[in-house]
Computed example of a mutant assay.
Amino acid sequence: MPALPTLDAESVTIARAAATELARLLPSTDALTVVEHDPASGPADDAVAVRAAFVGAVSADLLVVADQAVAEALAGTDATISVADALRPALDAATATLGAGVLDEARSAALAGGLEEEGVIAFALAGADGTPQAWFGLRMRQRPEAVPQQRGAAAPGAAQVSPLRLLHDVEMTLTAEIGRTKLPVRQVLELVPGTVLELDRAAGSLADVMVNGRLVARGEVVVVDEDYGIRITEIVGSENA
């Protein structure tokens, strides 16, 4: 087995970028934020962990513990897929930050201390209340001489079904935001009916469209059959969110 590299600042930066992209596409009912991993509040050793290997410009082993978050997102839908399949789009997004390469088949197994293994850079994915809902680990490896074919890949011309299609029936919360403001606690407590708050956006400006708390688009506020609506005018990429 090739020697593991030292956990330098560059490796940590790469791992955090991968964790951020994974959190962005993780099928969770809550918007998740990447925070430092505290082993004391980490998952149990018998928690379900999804592991996958990426071979390419930067090769790495990936580990995700998110069975509870995924189960809550899929609850009440017709999707009958495994945790590994549900996480595949998020794993694809995470490895996209590593450059060109091939992501191997994802497999589920007991965590068994995987986040604490030598060379693993681990992060927690916390919900709005700061409580970890999922965990991500990445271990950098030396680049092999050649990139192998993806294990289990279909033959050229064969029909393939995107893992993301399996999540099409999962409902996510969309909200429109026309502006924000900040107030000291004293003024918040003094709010009464009739109080006018000045927001940080000019009248007529585009509203932000949020998916589970993450900015994905901007649009104009319109009226549709006496209800408010949003006409999308701009899609916001992850690098601009």
Rank of each mutant, 00 (worst) to 15 (best):
P184V: 11
G237H: 14
I121Q: 05
D8S: 11
T20C: 06
P27E: 06
G101P: 09
A124H: 00
A128Y: 06
A110K: 11
D200V: 10
V224N: 13
I232C: 02
G137V: 05
E105T: 14
A73P: 06
L87T: 00
A49W: 01
V12R: 14
A217M: 12
E171W: 00
R16G: 04
A69C: 00
T77G: 06
L167S: 05
G42K: 04
L125P: 03
T33H: 09
R214T: 09
A66N: 03
V83Q: 00
R24Y: 14
L25Y: 15
A100M: 12
R180C: 09
Q149I: 10
A158D: 15
S82R: 07
L22S: 03
D8V: 08
A53C: 08
V236R: 01
Q142D: 15
P193R: 02
D200K: 11
L87Y: 09
A9T: 13
R180T: 14
A176I: 07
P144E: 12
A155V: 01
L26Q: 01
A124P: 09
A71G: 12
V83A: 09
D78Q: 13
L32P: 06
G229Y: 04
R201N: 12
E72F: 05
E239A: 15
E234T: 11
A122V: 03
A155R: 10
S41Y: 03
T95V: 15
Q150W: 07
S205M: 07
A3F: 00
L62C: 03
A109P: 06
V216A: 07
D8F: 07
L183V: 11
E118Y: 08
T97Q: 14
R107I: 13
A94Q: 03
F136I: 08
G157M: 13
L189R: 12
A90D: 10
P156A: 11
D67C: 05
S238W: 13
A100R: 13
P132R: 02
A122Q: 06
D30I: 13
A19E: 03
T97H: 06
M140A: 15
L32R: 07
R151H: 11
R139L: 07
E234S: 02
G114K: 00
A112T: 10
L26T: 04
F54R: 01
A49C: 14
R51I: 02
E220V: 05
D45G: 08
I232R: 05
P132C: 03
